[in-house]
Write a protein that binds this DNA or RNA. Structure first.
Length: 284
DNA sequence: TGAATTGTTATCGT
DNA sequence: AACGATAACAATTC
């Protein structure tokens, strides 16, 4: 379940071994995940030198020396390995391999086969549908205000929508909403300025924390992170809230498991605009 | 054995 | 028609 911080970690750890290397061979063992098709990918990248390895949303981006790009999406279970490492090549879930000019071989492991390998000569067009990068300077409170107010959607599915904000997944969305004290079912166009500023800061905070701790490891898919020890709500149903002690609750929002603290994330604001149940009796 | 898991897309509904 | 919500789907693990 790699999200932005996990993908960023994969990029940072593999970048030194890939930059400057020439690709001498490519093989796909699961044709339908290579776009437009395995031959086009192979023809496009073999002979090219990798200028840079970076990230856009949850995509891993190979910059090639002729201006074309190779994009890899890990989806649920994708990961990179190296054939000369003990864990790298002994899996039977290797779906693709890249041979480099120094004899090393990059392996794409993907147990569930949901990952994507895309070759494109038009990077901008390929990524045109992706929303704003939440860690960019461009992700200001004003920009988020516009994104939230121009539509009326529940907060959680909106934050998961990659065409609006690119990179959040289920874990960091729940964590950001908790940190901002916002209920996932709140309507996006009903947030006030204070709430939006808090949400913007919370999104950036949890993503940065995720990157700082090399991502979240909650199962066999992604083993190298430490962020799971610091999660406030995700996967903690029934456990006490680390802020107030109330039991964390798990609910379904848009078919997705969602974790909240019922007191830290009230559905409606606690103090403001509450009509008192009993009015102070007025003098006659 | 089947419930749980995710991002994306196709389809439904208003 | 346009938008938001929902169902379906890819395939595997435990």
């Amino acid at each position: 379940m790699p999200e932005l911080p996990e993908v960023e970690t994969v990029v940072r750890t593999n970048r030194p071994r890939l930059i400057g290397r020439r690709i001498v061979a490519f093989e796909s063992h699961w044709p339908r995940q290579a776009r437009p098709n395995p031959d086009a990918v192979r023809d496009g990248i073999v002979g090219r030198t990798i200028r840079n390895l970076s990230r856009r949303a949850k995509w891993i981006v190979f910059d090639l020396d002729d201006g074309s790009h190779l994009l890899v999406h890990l989806r649920m279970s994708g990961r990179f390995g190296w054939s000369n490492e003990p864990e790298g090549s002994n899996s039977h879930h290797i779906r693709a391999t890249w041979d480099l000019d120094n004899g090393q071989q990059l392996c794409f492991h993907d147990a569930r086969k949901f990952g994507r390998i895309v070759f494109t000569r038009d990077f901008n067009q390929e990524t045109a549908g992706l929303g704003v990068e939440p860690l960019d300077r461009a992700f200001t409170t004003a920009v988020l205000t516009n994104l939230l107010h121009r539509r009326a959607r529940r907060l959680k599915p909106l934050l998961l929508d990659q065409s609006v904000i690119a990179g959040l997944g289920n874990i960091y969305t729940d964590e950001a909403l908790f940190r901002a004290g916002l209920h996932p079912l709140l309507q996006s166009d009903r947030l006030n300025g204070t709430q939006i500023a808090s949400l913007r800061d919370s999104i950036r905070h949890v993503l940065r924390a995720g990157i700082r701790h090399n991502g979240t490891s909650i199962d066999w898919v992604y083993p190298e992170g430490q962020m799971q020890q610091r999660l406030m709500v995700y996967g903690r149903a029934g456990e006490p809230c680390r802020r107030c002690g109330a039991p964390i609750r798990r609910l379904l929002v848009g078919q997705r498991s969602t974790h909240i603290c019922p007191t830290c994330q009230p559905k409606r604001s606690r103090r403001a605009n509450r009509t008192p149940s009993r009015r102070v009796p007025s003098k006659v």
